[in-house]
Write a protein that binds this DNA or RNA. Structure first.
Lengths: 218, 218
DNA sequence: ATTCAAACATACCGACCGGTCGGTTTGTTA
DNA sequence: TAACAAACCGACCGGTCGGTATGTTTGAAT
């Protein structure tokens, strides 16, 4: 691997040959890991799809696991940056979460798929690696949501429930609307967005008109 | 395999030697598939844990995939029977769903784990098999919930949202409370139960006399 | 007791896959 | 253009695992 020119702060210079290869490998890995199970994706297949050989692959990545993790961490970092921007604006909790969902639904299919993939695949790695992956995922979405929810609770907009737990509920609610059936129920992503916010904030019970003036909890 | 004495209607007679072996194999498969990833569980390991050899295993099950599927289908059938009983009682939607959650939380750890396992592993099978697995899971829990929810909508207790979608939201809400963090937040499963019902029915928004005076479960 | 099929055990095969290694190309520098 | 290192190739290895072939035991019916 070449750490020589890899700095955490990306500068936009002309891409090296090596960098282009690495990018191609990471891209191929994304597609294949999305399409098939971890165990079924072979290093040979990844190399082949990248137009290089296994030798070249192992020149840049020390192992299959490392390739997967680098791919996933990069993907999660992209999401974190995107979602952070979406949540940066001021407004009510509902508005900010709406922005987030909007950004999420506007993502291309494969990018959304990666967010589901990581939740599916964490369990196949040993504890130390798994923990790192979980943290990476955590910081890419749930912890961002948690911050917004914490604000919402502080401002009396949300019920005083454990913020992290609420964040997970929110993520879970969004994830439900990613299934095929949801596409059948809602005509556009705007409808989905409102549905998610309504379900998460107001729940599934009926008779939810009069909720404005009531006392808050305790 | 011996289909000779396997009838859909189980009669309680003395278990054949072969049946005991099959049961041991299925049991071992459960434990191993729960503990490790599908690809990492070897047929040899399953046989060894059952106290037999690979030859015996392949005498009863034609393939690894088939063994996994039989194991999972049996597990899901158990759940379906249990949950059906829990939902059979009359009452409000909230009460019936409460019964269901109760039954769910009372399940031993490994049985709960199997419900999560199937959602994790569906993606590793080819479409025809996957579809069958999905249907099996679907009928073990979500479709039961859907029926209750349909009643709730009919009676004006729930908002007129697509019942199937609501059922998935409910399942997702329950699943969130299975994490480690939830055990840290709630002291007992009774607290968890009320939390799930509150979140699912009323949402996360404040401005509601949430827990105290309201009609909580039972 | 004989028989015969089901229920196992043992040894093995073939395929695959992650990873390695020696050698070759390519590009850069002096 | 000589020299050197990074990039890359492709054949190969060690090991594993699903699955099979074949022999041996059990047990119940005849």
């Amino acid at each position: 691997m070449n750490e020589s020119s890899d700095s955490p702060q990306e500068t936009s210079r002309a891409p090296t040959k090596s960098e282009k290869t690495i990018a191609a490998l990471l891209c191929a890995a994304e597609e294949l890991f999305l399409a098939k199970n971890y165990a079924e994706v072979t290093m040979g297949a990844i190399a082949q799809r990248s137009g290089v050989t296994k030798g070249a692959l192992y020149h840049h990545f020390p192992s299959k696991e490392d390739l997967y993790l680098q791919m996933m961490h990069a993907a999660l970092a992209r999401k974190r940056a995107l979602f952070s921007r979406a949540l940066a604006c001021a407004g009510t909790c509902r508005e900010r979460l709406g922005r987030l969902i909007e950004a999420f639904f506007d993502l291309p299919k494969n990018e959304i798929g990666l967010m589901r993939l990581v939740r599916r695949d964490v369990n196949i790695f040993a504890p130390p690696v798994r923990a790192k992956l979980v943290r990476s995922y955590q910081s890419s979405l749930p912890s961002l949501v948690e911050a917004v929810i914490r604000d919402g609770i502080r401002d009396g907009e949300l019920a005083p429930v454990d913020p992290r737990l609420l964040a997970w509920h929110f993520v879970a609610t969004v994830e439900v609307t990613l299934g095929r059936h949801a596409d059948f129920v809602f005509k556009d992503s705007r409808a989905k967005l409102n549905h998610v916010l309504d379900i998460f904030l107001r729940g599934a019970a009926a008779a939810r008109r009069a909720r404005q003036g009531a006392l808050s909890y305790e």
